[in-house]
């Protein structure tokens, strides 16, 4: 990896992260998209950490990636449980029906 510098990895991660963000913001369909977009963002974060770890020669980055993996898994599980319950209660997972915080 002669010509790949930290900046390349950072740019890639930045674009990926923003894509995930856009997925959250442009979401008009159903709540599951939010979870998938969050997974994309977490993926970009992992990539970021690992690339920093490689270029700075510090293992803390990779260790933290392990943590993030764990937490992401837990969070995905709980999120899906909540989504299922929500579906059971409301009958739909449309974004436009989740407006109890309105006003």
């Amino acid at each position: 990896m002669e010509t790949i510098t930290l900046n390349h990895c950072l740019v890639l991660n930045g674009i990926l992260f923003t894509l995930g963000l856009l997925g959250v913001l442009l979401n008009r369909r159903h709540l599951l998209m939010v979870l998938i977009a969050v997974e994309v963002m977490l993926l970009s974060v992992n990539l970021n950490l690992v690339s920093f770890s490689y270029f700075l020669k510090d293992y803390a980055g990779q260790v933290f990636t392990v943590f993030i993996l764990t937490v992401a898994a837990a969070e995905a599980a709980i999120g899906l449980a909540i989504l299922t319950l929500y579906y059971k209660n409301h009958g739909t997972i449309n974004v436009s029906s989740a407006t109890t915080l309105k006003g």
Binding site: M1, E39, N46, V50, Y54, Q62, T65, V66, L69, A73
Partner: peptide, 15 residues
């Protein structure tokens, strides 16, 4: 590519 092969496979298995 970034020399983190363990993490790569952990990612695949778990994620």
């Amino acid at each position: 590519l970034l020399r983190a092969e363990y993490l790569a496979f952990t990612l695949i298995i778990i994620y």
